[in-house]
């Protein structure tokens, strides 16, 4: 009988459920670029840290100066990544002929930012009290939780990225002193890997 109509109905249902509840303008390329920025950042940070040790100024002053430089570097990378994600989402939304800023974008942002800002403030407070040992672990874990929390509101790949970040964060907790390398893995390699998967799965059409 109307076999085709039933099939079309089901496809329509699925399409509308996805489109009305998920932010589908997120581009995998944002992830790839964020990963590249992060790797460059780790490279620069590594240089700064090793360089500063031999500078002949009072130790504490160098420490503070280095800290400011590293925080500044992290901030620049964060801004670049956000700007890139914004531009790619805007372009993808245009291509899909949908609005970028709608209910799904609001949902995604809220569920993403709540754990992320909590983790960010937590890390900044620890830094201000000079507990540096667990910063890499904390940022990775909270970032992972933020991703898991918001995965429902966009592509499911984000869930796996989030879980990977959490595992990496826990490993970073167990191996203090290698923070920079865990950062390179978590914010660099994982972003490029999962961003690439998303790009080939959802963007290239």
């Amino acid at each position: 009988m109307d076999k085709n109509k039933y099939l079309e109905d089901l496809q329509e249902i699925k399409k509308l459920m996805n489109r009305s509840s998920k932010f589908l303008s997120l581009s995998g390329l944002s992830g790839v670029f964020a990963g590249v920025y992060a790797l460059l950042g780790v490279f620069v940070a590594d240089y700064l840290i090793n360089e500063k040790i031999v500078v002949a100024v009072p130790y504490t002053r160098t420490q503070t100066y280095l800290l400011v430089q590293l925080l500044g570097l992290a901030f620049v990378i964060l801004l670049l990544s956000i700007a890139t994600a914004f531009i790619f989402s805007y372009r993808k939304a245009k291509r899909q002929k949908t609005k970028m800023w709608d209910e799904t974008a609001k949902n995604l942002l809220f569920h993403f930012l709540l754990p992320l800002l909590t983790g960010g403030l937590f890390a900044l407070i620890l830094i201000s009290r000079q507990y540096y040992g667990l910063i890499a672990a904390i940022t990775l874990i909270f970032y992972g939780l933020a991703l898991v929390n918001s995965a429902k509101y966009t592509y499911g790949t984000i869930l796996y990225l989030g879980i990977s970040e959490i595992i990496l964060g826990l490993l970073a907790t167990a191996f203090p002193g290698y923070g920079l390398w865990f950062w390179a893995l978590g914010f660099g390699v994982l972003h490029i890997f999962y961003g690439g998967i998303m790009y080939f799965k959802f963007d290239r059409k």
């Binding site: 109905d9 329509e12 249902i13 509308l16 459920m17 009305s20 509840s21 209910e103």
Partner: peptide
């Protein structure tokens, strides 16, 4: 059908 689909998940 569309209205119900949207309201099922929102």
């Amino acid at each position: 059908l569309g209205i119900m689909s949207v309201l099922m998940v929102n």
